[in-house]
Design a protein around this nucleic acid. Structure first.
Lengths: 119, 119
DNA sequence: CCAATATGTCGATAAGTCTCGATATATGGA
DNA sequence: TCCATATATCGAGACTTATCGACATATTGG
């Protein structure tokens, strides 16, 4: 559900963990490494990660003693699609500028000229 | 800030109000009408709307006795851009399918064939 | 099997959010 | 000015979330 996903991202540590995992890509990262990177006690992070997982934004698999967390691109894409469909509902003209801004560069750090955007 | 926006959308009544305002478009809707549509007491809705406003997702203007709320497309687009840039960071291949899914139809309810997606 | 490592679960406290009645403010009309 | 309408703000109770210590579970190597 979208609400759960929004709620999962509406918290500093979780948003940071999510971004870290996005950058980590397909390989993912072990929980401990994320905890160290974000200076969060392992048990606190553990509950944050399970919230992200329940929201369908990350997945986990065990690898030896570690548990590797990885972005769930499918779920993330679902959330984006929900936002985009909601946002564009019936009015392509409005959403177009956004897509135009992202598309040309091929989804990368994009056209940084007109961005005061991310922070 | 993105966290505030995610938090604003992470609540049932607020997400519904937001979607309603998206559909209402440029004209917007008076607070009272939203309250009636969602069966929410006006004071409860009022605080929800101010949370959406603080998150930069809606704006308000007075019109006679009513206060008209309207989607802040700029802010909404900013949120989307944040998600897309985070999601695609360095890997266009991954985000492309999403955009492909939305673009062809021109941002509408899209290509419903391959979606078991939103829920 | 035991110890070490890596995570997860439980439980309590602190902090924050949701909801709604009561009250306050702003506008328009008589 | 007085009343009705439309919203906003305040404040309290109920509920939810965040954090972290203590303990539990799973894996590897000796």
């Amino acid at each position: 559900m979208a609400i759960r996903a929004f709620g999962a991202l509406a918290q500093d540590s979780r948003l940071e963990a999510f971004r870290l995992l996005v950058r980590a890509g397909e390989e993912g990262l072990p929980a401990g490494e994320i905890a160290r990177a974000l200076f969060i006690p392992h048990n606190t992070l553990s509950s944050h990660l399970s919230i992200l997982a329940q929201a369908g934004l990350v997945t986990s698999r065990r690898d030896g003693r570690s548990i590797i967390y990885r972005i769930d691109f499918e779920g993330t894409r679902t959330l984006l699609a929900f936002l985009i469909e909601d946002c564009c509902q019936g009015r392509p003209d409005i959403c177009a500028p956004l897509l135009a801004c992202v598309q040309p560069v091929g989804c990368g750090p994009a056209n940084t000229s007109d961005k005061g955007v991310a922070s």
